[in-house]
Design a protein around this nucleic acid. Structure first.
Length: 513
RNA sequence: GGCGCGUUGGAGAAGCGGCUUAACUCACCAGCCUUUCACGCUGGCAUUCAUGGGUUCGAAUCCCAUACGCGUCACCA
């Protein structure tokens, strides 16, 4: 199979781009085919400088590898160039051929007259567009055309459609199966007045010339499919297999809608880089959405690489999936927990260097300390799955550093500020950094009972009247004083890492507050 | 408004006419484990597949209609 992606260099590259890229990449490379990158820059107005680099670096970041196409240093492959504006002559040559065959004609209609036409059509509840009697330039005589041309009037080149709205045909879609498609009857634009093709024409020409076998694109293109197939047929070219993917959606109150650039930061691929998600996480999440049997396969083959999963078009859903960041986070936790602490440290540092400088500084100041801190609770059969992205990890590990430490959570249920002081005073009094974990905890248990708290949560649950609270409240009060939170890895280990002085300082701080 | 696509639990979904008392994963809830929070384990979570008809001995699965959602109708892609 030969597949491709054709992003526009608008500076914004999103999840949908990656989504389709993964499909194309899998399809091509699973079949020992070719996957290439074409830059669809036919709309110069929307082009943003440096956007091609953004596309390249995003795709590279997510491990999408192209066999041919645009690269940072020119184009690479058999069907160059891969940037549409540079292919102007090719489109024009094909267009000329269509004109000669009577399948295309120049149209001199002005923007105003087209707008007027649309208004009338709307009023009369007719189909919009340039067709039938509305296609006023369709039957211009050669003399008229010549006259306009000598006047230097600007024009576009339109396709002369032979289709009829009443006819429809069945087209096979790689994802959706047989589709019933209404025939195209619109004389749509092939070449814009600047001589650059529209998407519709560029797609047909390029994908034919570049030997694309499978066109993977979003379902928003379904509506223009009739134009594309009519163009392929008119040119006598073989149609590719179209694969129209479903859109990623987002729950918005009662209804769901397409992910939107303005409202949903998670649409942008940059978001995942900035948040510090590993590329493999996004890949894997997208794969679960694309082929939901991936999860089962992964469970059955935990040691196998993503690439050996047999991806299939037939397994793809035709309805738009809701984007689920919670699920993505879960996948991320699973991946991160399998990673050695040293590697997490490296990833964290390289992320923090651009996205969280203060954290990078603190990390770099003492790598051994950071790795020890990261390591707590990660070993053994039942490791903690605390972190899912670098941004969150930076927050999670912040209490190990005095310059970042702060109290975040409220006091536990059965503790007020007075009892907090009581607990902490007793804790500090008994605290000895040299205590073993057992000794350390035995002291907490004694303290708990002396202050009228239940030494076991069960006891308190059974008889809440008899106690002020349970050991849960006591240990969480201590935990909060030292880590700022009610949820942390093992407290004793944390104390060992922080050291006697800092533990005492933090506890004292709460006592004297 | 025309045309097209879609509709299985809170989410992703499996299912493709009898093996389904609708799989699996996430979420949620409960219990257990645990000094705590987590992690882990066990169990619960759709008598029902948008609704209404029909075909059939038998339907989530096939057909028709309705409803709802989404997309599209640019010299944007």
């Amino acid at each position: 199979m030969v597949t491709r992606i054709g992003p526009s260099p608008t500076g914004f590259i999103h999840l949908g781009n990656l989504y389709n890229a993964i499909i194309g990449e899998r399809l091509a490379h699973q079949s020992a085919g070719v996957f290439f990158l074409r830059i669809e820059d036919t709309d110069a107005k929307r082009e943003v400088p440096g956007a091609v680099d953004t596309i390249l670096s995003s795709m590279q970041f997510f491990g999408i590898e192209f066999d041919e196409g645009a690269t940072g240093s020119g184009d690479n492959g058999n069907y160059q160039p891969y940037r549409q504006r540079q292919r102007k002559n090719i489109y024009q040559a094909i267009a000329k051929h269509l004109v000669q065959k009577g399948l295309a004609y120049p149209c001199f209609c002005s923007e105003e007259s087209l707008n007027q036409m649309r208004e009338t059509q709307q009023k009369q509840k007719l189909d919009f567009g340039y067709y039938g009697k509305w296609a006023t330039c369709r039957n211009l005589s050669l003399e008229q055309i010549e006259a306009y041309l000598t006047e230097n009037k600007s024009f576009v080149l339109r396709f002369r459609s032979a289709g009829n709205a009443k006819n429809s045909e069945t087209v096979f879609d790689g994802i959706r199966g047989n589709l019933s498609v209404q025939q195209n009857y619109q004389d749509f634009i092939l070449l814009k007045s600047d001589g650059i093709p529209t998407y519709h024409f560029a797609h047909v020409v390029d994908d034919h010339l570049m030997r694309t076998t499978h066109v993977v694109r979003g379902e928003e293109w379904l509506a223009s499919l009739p134009m594309h197939i009519e163009t392929f047929d008119a040119l006598g070219w073989e149609r590719p297999v179209y694969c129209h993917t479903a859109q990623l959606m987002k729950q918005d109150g009662e209804s769901r809608r397409k992910l939107s650039k303005r409202q949903d930061p998670e649409l942008a691929l940059d978001y995942y880089r900035a948040e510090g998600y590993l590329p493999a996480v996004v890949w894997e999440y997208l794969l679960t959405v694309l082929n939901s049997n991936y999860e089962e396969w992964h469970l059955a083959n935990p040691q196998k690489d993503l690439d050996s999963f047999p991806f299939s078009l037939e397994k793809m859903s035709t309805s738009g999936a809701l984007f689920d960041i919670v699920k993505l986070n879960d996948i991320s936790k699973e991946i991160l927990i399998k990673m050695p602490a040293e590697q997490i440290y490296d990833e964290l540092v390289s992320w923090a260097q651009t996205y969280n400088k203060p954290f990078a500084a603190v990390l770099n100041a003492n790598p051994a300390y950071a790795i020890k801190a990261i390591s707590i609770g990660r070993s053994g059969d039942r490791p903690r799955k605390d972190i899912y992205c670098h941004r969150q990890a930076a927050e999670f590990f912040s209490f190990y550093y005095d310059e970042l430490f702060q109290i975040e959570d409220e006091l536990p249920q059965n503790v007020n500020e007075t009892t907090e002081k009581e607990i902490l005073q007793r804790y500090l009094q008994d605290f000895d950094i040299k205590d073993s974990q057992e000794q350390w905890f035995a002291k907490i248990r004694v303290l708990t009972e002396e202050l009228g708290y239940a030494p076991q949560p069960k006891l308190y649950k059974k008889n809440p009247e008899a106690y002020r609270g349970s050991i849960v409240d006591v240990s969480n009060t201590i935990r909060r004083a030292i880590t700022g939170r009610l949820n942390s890895p093992d407290l004793w280990e944390i104390c060992q890492i922080l050291g006697n002085e800092r533990v005492r300082k933090r506890v004292l701080l709460k006592i004297n507050k």
